[in-house]
Design a protein around this nucleic acid. Structure first.
Lengths: 222, 222
DNA sequence: TCTGTTTCTAAAGATGTTGTCAAGGGGGAA
DNA sequence: TTCCCCCTTGACAACATCTTTAGAAACAGA
């Protein structure tokens, strides 16, 4: 059950929203004490915050900034149409969303659903490359394909990363050597071949025996 | 040639990045005067901005917001791993991307490429030649026509590239030999003929048997 | 220090590309 | 038509390039 924090000064709208959200299967969390919004937010750790920008006493924007720092929940801004929409949009660029009053109920619900899905969807591994049925996690040093995975050593990782960064294109041996041993000229050209063999071996283990093609005289290609 | 603006205070990294980007065919645009980043951005209209969040003097976040308003270029944030990754992610969700230091070069390049492709919208980079129903990808080393494709070897690729670069014109055998074996005088003239035959063979396979015309005593012509 | 892993060097083996050769084809000029 | 010369073509051998194996050296973790 996901908690949604409602920050809204009009009590009529408060209740309406609370009811609506509850009917939709969320747990509404209506803020009544506006002097310590932050504290409540930290305490309750809501999954989403519905923030009316036109609050009394406090500038909605600074509140927003503070909320962002305090909790990781996405924020949907509610604003009246005539307010500075551009600014709100700027604020909301962070994956959140905004909606102008008066809003229609289905739209609001759709927004909530979208934002929740986006944010709950796990953190999006920040450093993976994907290409041709291969997934390469650079931080973990692991390739996976067909459900199988294999651990790579440093060199193998670099080679594969380099190839995947230029998927489909021919990457010359020279480029690969540069990428691996930047400018160590006296590295035996053959060393690359050896590493290539090992990498291919691991790719074969996970079911992709011919993932890396060699283009004689030119280089390698995914 | 796409311009990439590099906003980074460490001069060592600056140079490294500049070199790297140049090698990849981009035009790096290193910012040295940090007091008027905005002005420079507006003036130069880069295609992409690489922004290190940990800048001196100015909060990276506010700078980002300002950049967003000033230019339409996508921004890739560079941040150290321990910084508030959540916030950066929030910032970058607007179609841009972020990357944590220390990053690997292939990853950075892949990100740049992805973001540029996404934002520019247009498809392939200019490493392809087209002429008379033929499409030749230099980086992939394949010709395609009528939906069929064929892989070329180094020599075949060179010949075809040379011809396509002068579509319709007559290219002398001497020119082709120069292009293939620069100044190796003692190459048998016949060798070119053989390679030509082989190239024609592959073109025939993809449905263009008479793509290359021979002009007796003068040379070849597409 | 020991142990296991990873990387490099060396050398032999495999393979595709390329150049050479030799045997035709077929324009084009007489 | 005839002949010559340029070009084409197929076969083949040579070569360069790549692969693979094995063992030594370097490295990292216990």
């Amino acid at each position: 059950m996901q908690k949604i924090m409602v920050i809204e000064d009009d009590t009529a709208i408060q209740e309406e929203l609370a009811l609506l959200l509850e009917n939709e299967g969320y747990t509404p969390l209506v803020v009544t004490n506006f002097t310590d919004i932050l504290g409540q937010a930290v305490l309750e750790r809501p999954d989403l915050i519905l923030l009316d920008i036109g609050l009394p006493r406090r500038d909605g924007f600074s509140l927003c900034a503070a909320l962002r720092k305090a909790v990781s929940a996405p924020i949907i801004f509610v604003t009246s149409r005539d307010a500075g929409v551009d600014e709100v949009r700027a604020l909301s660029l962070g994956g959140d969303d905004y909606i102008t009053k008066p809003y229609s109920v289905p739209v609001l619900l759709a927004r909530i659903k979208a934002v929740l899905r986006r944010s709950s969807g796990e953190p999006e591994p920040a450093d993976t490359l994907e290409a041709g049925g291969l997934r390469l996690s650079l931080t973990k040093g692991v390739v996976s394909a067909n459900g199988k995975t294999a651990e790579l050593t440093r060199n193998e990782l670099q080679i594969l990363a380099c190839l995947m960064a230029h998927t489909g294109q021919i990457v010359s041996r020279a480029d690969l050597i540069d990428a691996l041993w930047d400018n160590q000229i006296y590295i035996d050209d053959n060393t690359l071949s050896v590493n290539m063999t090992r990498l291919r071996g691991k790719l074969t283990e996970i079911g992709l025996p011919d993932a890396i093609k060699t283009r004689r005289g030119m280089g390698y290609q995914l």
